[in-house]
Amino acid sequence: MNPIHLFCGHYGSGKTEVAIDDAIRLRRDYNRVIIVDLDIVNPYFRTVDAREKLTALGIEVLSSEFAGSNVDIPSLPPDILKVFCDPDAAVVFDVGGDDDGAIALGQYFPYFKEHPYAMYLVANVYRPLTGTADELMEMLTRIQAVSRLQFTGLINNANLAQLTTAQHVLHGQTVLRGVTEKTGLPVSYTCVDESIADTLPAEITGEIRPIHRHLKLQF
């Protein structure tokens, strides 16, 4: 069956950039890639803002028809359901922040019973309310409760925007190891801005994904 990757986490943890990056990587191996903007929480800085770039790369973007517009209607298009019966397309879900955002995912629970998925907790330990293993556990538990799905991995996305150094990434790894000890969930990979990817020390283990930011402001 086609792979489905779900990206959840605290709002502002970098889910959208991580999801866009994953979609672009999947495009290397799959003829068809669909990214679903499931965010019903955040009014600005959304996957759909990168629609033009993604479409040019051959990635289909599914989102609320009101996303990025001047109305605040958290509706989702019915054609999202097609991703569960499309064996050729790799699918990325960019889920809205916190458990509030993950509520939108819960409605697809019956379809996921039949379909394998990878569900990642994107974690930036420099965001308030998700700075410690205990806080991340609380977030993880609440998202699992409302989505009725189980996480399969953690993503270390520790960053302070343009001020990020290798030390920050390392600290993120240390905190996430605490979550691994409690849950058994592995750190699936580490995301860093492409500008500092070469500066990471050997202590950062596992796959490292250099991220090119697509939603960066000009000012």
Binding site: Y11, G12, N124, Y126, R127, P128, G131, L160, A161, L163
Partner: peptide, 14 residues
């Protein structure tokens, strides 16, 4: 130490 915050939540915490 520095944290990464949205304007709205930074205002609330402040």
């Amino acid at each position: 130490e520095k944290v990464l915050m949205k304007g709205n939540e930074a205002l609330a915490e402040a």
